[in-house]
Design a protein around this nucleic acid. Sequence first.
DNA 1: CGGTTTAGTTTGCCGGATGAATTTATCTCG
DNA 2: CGAGATAAATTCATCCGGCAAACTAAACCG
Lengths: 401, 401
Amino acid sequence: MPQPEPRDPSRVARQAQMRDQNLGVALRGIVDAAQPPSRAQLAASEGLARATVSGLVDHLIEARLVRELEPTQTQRAGRPAVPLAPARGTVAGIGMEVNVDYLGVRALDLAGDVLAEHVELDDLRGAEPAVVLDRLAALVAPVLDGLRGGGVRVAGTALALPGLVDRVTGPLRVAPNLGWRDVDVVGALSALTGFPPRVANEANLAARAEAHARRGSPSFAYVSGEVGIGGAIVLDGEIFPGRHGWSGEIGHIVVDAFRGPRASDGSLEALAGQDAMLRAAGLPPTARLDALLDALSADDPRATAAVAQAARALGVALASVANVVDVGEVVLGGTFGQLFEHVHDEVAARLDELVIFAPWSPLEVSPARAGQYPAMTGGALAALNTVLTDPAEWLRTHETP
Amino acid sequence: MPQPEPRDPSRVARQAQMRDQNLGVALRGIVDAAQPPSRAQLAASEGLARATVSGLVDHLIEARLVRELEPTQTQRAGRPAVPLAPARGTVAGIGMEVNVDYLGVRALDLAGDVLAEHVELDDLRGAEPAVVLDRLAALVAPVLDGLRGGGVRVAGTALALPGLVDRVTGPLRVAPNLGWRDVDVVGALSALTGFPPRVANEANLAARAEAHARRGSPSFAYVSGEVGIGGAIVLDGEIFPGRHGWSGEIGHIVVDAFRGPRASDGSLEALAGQDAMLRAAGLPPTARLDALLDALSADDPRATAAVAQAARALGVALASVANVVDVGEVVLGGTFGQLFEHVHDEVAARLDELVIFAPWSPLEVSPARAGQYPAMTGGALAALNTVLTDPAEWLRTHETP
DNA sequence: CGGTTTAGTTTGCCGGATGAATTTATCTCG
DNA sequence: CGAGATAAATTCATCCGGCAAACTAAACCG
């Protein structure tokens, strides 16, 4: 039989999808708006008829995804507009993170408010995956119970890991700094929480939180230096996932191909990772970043030189990223966020020097502003994003009448 | 007045757009299909009702974008299917290219057939932009006249340039190897041909041709070594443009940040560009690539060493690209396509060594197969793509009843 | 030559967006 | 204070386009 060619799920337009699509447009318009918009404003900004928007909004309110605010006291003639805002405490996205020095959970609602949060600090290098995931599950379970008990629907969960995660098939491939390799994280956590989490790279989720913190669809390269150096690319507010979710591995960019016998000796992580910086600064490998910061404020010459060297490598690597993906801004998070004032000038100088389009579109370098544990926030946002992308579909699968 | 917030032209679904959208889906299905599909096959593969597809196809045939083939002699029961194929010689995309050693035009129709082609070989380094563009216009004008005289509608024109082109605002920013800077190419050519061309980077358009040559939405990094080293990223068959169309500048990746006083001394182009390879091989700077190939076949040690060194740099740079954008294949075009057998092993080895996901998803290295002057083909395809993307819109603006 | 099978067309239906008319709620001015 | 004026939201008839089912067309088979 001549198979009719299994083409991709092409975006044909059916009228059934039209409603769903516009429901998503309306919800996004309300959630992303700087000011709570009225139905009429929404109609104008999205180019839909007011009647259409009214219907959509009614549906969203009934589903408890949107709420009406009190009409504001305006000094204008005419019936006052009813401002619309994302509902609070009706849907939660759960962000989880296992990292080298801590593990934790954070729950956000559509309004961006933190509904629950727990973090445990601990050195997890070399810890057994099963044990760690048990601890995580123990941390998450009461949060889920608490939310559900309060009538909050859980949109989904997402787990941030400092390593290579296959976003389609699930397993953690490798997390060098945890010492994990080929761990079936999804399977283990599903068994523990009864919920298959989305898994993603820590830097990618942190970048998502960063994009959220800077409204208005920014484009930037994000650097997340914890112990290793991770990164992510954000384009028009969307994180760029690559085929498998393996994009943005900035730490593995080689900036000095001829340094050692193995080209990887010249990778950014080898030259500017936390261990490399501490070593170059003459600090013990067990030292923490604070020690380096102290040495810097004391004008210790070795520390200064170590950070300068790392900044050069970082700037060169980020210039390569900018040349390849055409991003105009660089956001430094994690370690480099804390070192921001000490690395900014060098990074900016290398970008100016090396990025071919710099003369026409100068690059900006800025520190991360997504707060603490951005990957947990990003994970929660990723979970909520499934609701925003297709609220109708989500309601169909999650409504429990 | 409280402006209703000028949001992006969001993809709201109206029913008027539904038809246009599906018209595009149908046309793409016919053009991209490996075998000419029937209406029924198209309906099945796209998930549309047969009645709907029939209507769409009728429209496309009337617009002379699609033609019906003779029913094939099948030994099956039932009414024979009418195969559908892109129309020939009814619409043309024009690809133009100005490069260091030549300039030319190529016209393709929807079936991918070459309707016209002219290439002039010449050394254009340092040539005056106005003069060169005049020559190009003189080359293009008869092609356009010939096509229009034959009743062929021109879908658009696209010009490939070996430099940085702003895809939104138009002007060529800089083409180092031509010695051009801030040239208003669009303005000049509009005046000459009465047609504003789309302008794009040579490597990006060549990569588009390459993606077309490999059906089935491949993802790869494309390297276009001519005199300089350009590149492009292709994801799921789509070229990745970046914000301004400035993506893929692989030649400016720095692989040896500490080689010289300026970090750019360690860029891929400085280490593996044609000039660098010739110099390292002990050949005069005026030599052509053929001389290097001859020296290689004669086992000249300097040439071998020069190419090995370049291949290492290339491999390292491409590994960085793969780590950042998560592509699984590397396509070598231009100079490196010709040197393919001499660089393949080293490039593949560096990718294996450096790309973090290589153990789970090995990278492939292959030579370009888009034929000669791929950027001209890619330009023509880019022009035709405006028709494929939204045939209804294109017909509205281009029908001359 | 009647039955079967597959391709393509016709037809009535239905969901959903739309614009105009209507209702609601406020402000302003005489 | 009441009659416009003004703007937001809702109601309603209309229309567009995809859809399923029925129907026609063109082959094959026994």
